[in-house]
Design a protein around this nucleic acid. Structure first.
Lengths: 273, 273
DNA sequence: CGTGTTCTTGAAGCCGTTCAATGAAAGTGG
DNA sequence: CCACTTTCATTGAACGGCTTCAAGAACACG
């Protein structure tokens, strides 16, 4: 029985689709920005421009075929581009579409009756959103930044699953791992200390990006501070303060759309991982 | 394709195993306790003893057979009894056993490096614990109270799944729903207000118990205050205070090993559900 | 009935939120 | 490329809620 060991599926979570994922250098930015920051920052910024600001582009099932079945599945999907804040789907609507993030980051969230938003996860490249069996979306999803995704019709996806029991197993294991990711998030949110929440979040993001591209000291944070706050159950002020504090202690370095790890072991100690 | 519509599986979550679940009246308790509480309490307490304190006993797959396949599966399991705090399994150990809770409540938890415990869920009657595909337990599980469970060997369970693709689908949908339950918990933990957390927790437990037995105004809380605190990311004092506060406002009534709902709509408003 | 555990409740202190203002970055149109 | 506007991030001050510490009450067990 083939369990599609060469790739993994995630309805939302933190695994790449293909083991052949690769990163490319892109998106340089002016080093003249962030003038308020000191020398170390400037240096790091330059290093960033030189090699570290990676736009992750894992091989999409829409463009890379490693098996006949994968090829069949790929023919069912269609690549789409999304501008920031473009909706993928909304909580409660019929789940007629399944997405696979191919570049960028998606926000997955639900609203409370008082209007507050809880981000329940981030969809990274390779993650699947809106997987069966639920016939209605349990949460909303939109683009946290400019992103692309591969789009499948739910009915075609289900037909494919029915014809490929092995593929169903693959989807199942993906969902099970996804569950583990969500449980880890509960460990995060259950923390009493805000500093530990932020630190654990950074480590978690680092691990997830490392699965997609080569591990790097730079952890991309394409989402805004408000998104991080809504994810961790903290106010935007507390997120900002704790990031600043970690930066002041030289544990991390704040860079545009991300952070750079300076002292991972200290961060792990703070995170109580 | 039969998807075993007549029952549902959960690796941990909130659904019953069989639709034939039923509740029985049991465990009366002395009305002379809780003397400090007022008249309303005493009355409610008596009512409780008369009819409401239900020990939930859903039909176990070990004792009730509704289909040939179910019968085969049932023959693989063995019923075991556990005293309070007895371990089912530990995080990180090889997952050689799968459990189905048949009576009582299990605590599912992980420890942080600083020794603090995060309860990531409660296993109610009908819930499955330790489902594949992970070959190591992602969390620990023990008995929150006196409980019974049906025990399966992982290898036998897997063989059964291999021979019954429909059963695999059933396990898959169970895991997917389980994921939804866990995401709901994230909504809980992301709350900024402790009162909302406690209220939402009570409503969640009510819904889960309602799926097992007939809906009742009495919600069993067999776990201790410390367990609830470790679940919600609150100190034991805050849990106690907020329960007391809800009781003072006549929104709930605190009874031994549970609470009684007096004003559900107000509770829902507080919970921001 | 006595002992150990759990639950409740009070007081003090800290931490995170809220409100608000400043500063930086991104988007827009000339 | 620059000026303008809008959005986002940072930071300060004050308030409020949660935790901590601690004591007492209620309960569970023999």
């Amino acid at each position: 029985m083939c369990h599609f060991a060469q790739f993994r599926l995630f309805s939302f979570g933190s695994k790449q689709l293909c083991m052949t994922a690769h990163a490319t250098i892109s998106a340089p930015f002016p080093a003249t920005r962030y003038r308020r920051r000191g020398m170390a920052e400037a240096v790091a910024t330059r290093q960033l421009r030189d090699c570290d600001q990676c736009s992750i582009r894992p091989a999409s099932i829409c463009s890379v075929l490693t098996s006949p079945d994968l090829s069949r599945l790929e023919s069912l999907g269609r690549e789409i581009a999304l501008r920031p804040r473009a909706m993928l789907f909304s909580e409660g609507h019929p789940s007629d579409t399944i997405y696979n993030v191919t570049a960028g980051v998606a926000r997955l969230y639900r609203f409370r009756s008082d209007g507050s938003r809880q981000i329940i996860g981030f969809g990274l490249p390779g993650d699947f959103l809106g997987l069966p069996p639920a016939d209605r979306y349990g949460f909303s999803a939109d683009a946290a930044e400019r992103m692309t995704a591969c789009r499948f019709s739910r009915s075609a996806f289900l037909r494919f699953m029915d014809c490929h029991p092995d593929f169903m197993w693959s989807v199942y294991t993906a969902t099970a791992r996804n569950l583990e990711t969500t449980q880890s998030q509960i460990m995060l949110l259950g923390e009493l200390d805000a500093q530990a929440k932020v630190a654990a979040f950074l480590i978690d993001m680092r691990v997830r990006w490392a699965r997609i591209a080569a591990a790097s000291a730079t952890v991309p944070l394409p989402m805004g501070r408000q998104d991080i706050g809504d994810f961790l159950g903290l106010s935007i002020a507390t997120v900002s303060r704790n990031l600043t504090r970690l930066a002041r202690e030289r544990t991390i370095l704040i860079v545009p759309k991300g952070i750079r790890l300076l002292d991972l072991s200290r961060l792990q100690r703070i995170a109580k991982t």
